[in-house]
Amino acid sequence: MADTDELQEAVIKGDAKAAAAATQAALAAGVTPLSIVTEHLVPAMDEVGRRFECQDYFVPEMLLSARAMKASMEIVRPLLAASGAEPIGRVVIGTVQGDLHDIGKNLVASMLEGGGFEVIDLGVNVEPRRFIEAASSRNAGLVALSALLTVTMPAMKTTIDAFAAAGLREKVKIMVGGAPVTEQYANTIGADGYSESAAGAVALARRLAAA
């Protein structure tokens, strides 16, 4: 459908205004809110992720696409809620204690939101206790931890251990990421998943939510 192709295009190009207009047009043409997300926003962000991986896109382009996707989501979200559609899952996300880097974390948060997740972003320098409180009070099934420094990576383990100590480790799936983080490290500290990229983080979150 021409209108929704325009939506995908607007998201890929990072044009928030065009994305909002195309969303309104698609809704007016009878496209359901849910299929706007699943058939148009998600594939558009997948394409953005693909371009990022082949270094066609860089962080600024990703941020702009995420912004355009959010413009569409803002229109669609109330409609989804009114129709009783539940988000795919709820994710508590934050940069671990001691670490103040947030560009990558913000990108992942945006991508997850576009991927149909409800995202609770705790910001940077987040103590384990705050991850636990947010996950329990908001009944989130997923927790996403970010770190950019090898010196703060151990705080990921501390956080995972704190979930275990609180008796909540079985209630949440914990995913980790950030430039120095590796799959092997994720396994070593008992995380449930690792992604190398923001786009991959969405796919991972979907797998974990479905598990």
Partner: peptide, 9 residues
Amino acid sequence: YLYDALTRY
């Protein structure tokens, strides 16, 4: 928008 997002750090 990018300037705000990238200087927020």
